[in-house]
């Protein structure tokens, strides 16, 4: 029996066919099969959020999704946030507000923050903290991440993409 399978998915707007080992998670497939290493591995038990992606409109921990489950799915990763060389408002805000130190949790936070702002363009501080509680950061103490999300939200309300 073949230990690999082809998985067809639309990743960051592009249709791709990935050759995946049956044992691969979606995280493995993105990193090793698609070569998109922006999504990070932090714990493999769905507790840290470093592997956050949006799959069919839903924010998920890709380490808990099997690659096979991504068949036919639309997936957004951190690599899909910028349009060409136009950084997303969140990316710009994270830079301007110094919302990253080591940066390893940043892709997860960006994807999760975008998922929040897509459904709630004007979140309160509590709503932001609650939504992002599934993403762990050990470096920043979260303060500047909050400020970056608030800044990006304001920016996007004034200039929708």
């Amino acid at each position: 029996m073949s230990k690999k399978r082809m998985v067809n998915a639309t990743i960051n707007g592009r249709e791709q066919t990935l050759l995946c080992d049956n044992r691969m998670s979606l995280l493995d497939a993105l990193r090793d099969a698609a070569g998109l290493t922006g999504t990070k591995e932090g714990c493999l038990t769905g507790d840290c959020g470093a592997c956050s992606v949006v799959m069919n409109g839903k924010l998920v921990d890709s380490c808990l999704v099997m690659a096979a489950e991504a068949e036919g799915a639309a997936i957004t990763t951190v690599e899909g946030l910028a349009i060409g060389s136009d950084l997303h408002a969140l990316q710009q805000a994270f830079l301007a507000e110094a919302a990253l130190q080591c940066g390893v949790c940043t892709p997860g936070f960006l994807v999760a923050s975008k998922a929040l702002l897509d459904r709630n363009p004007d979140p309160t501080e509590h709503e932001i903290r609650y939504w992002l509680a599934g993403n762990l950061c050990r470096c920043t103490g979260y303060q500047k991440i909050l400020e970056a999300v608030q800044s990006a939200a304001a920016q996007l309300r004034d200039n929708p993409r």
Binding site: G38, E41, L81, L87
Partner: peptide, 15 residues
């Protein structure tokens, strides 16, 4: 090094 880190281009050890 900020742009590479917010776009996922930055290469960490496991990448």
């Amino acid at each position: 090094d900020g742009e590479d880190k917010v776009t996922g281009r930055a290469q960490y050890g496991a990448d």
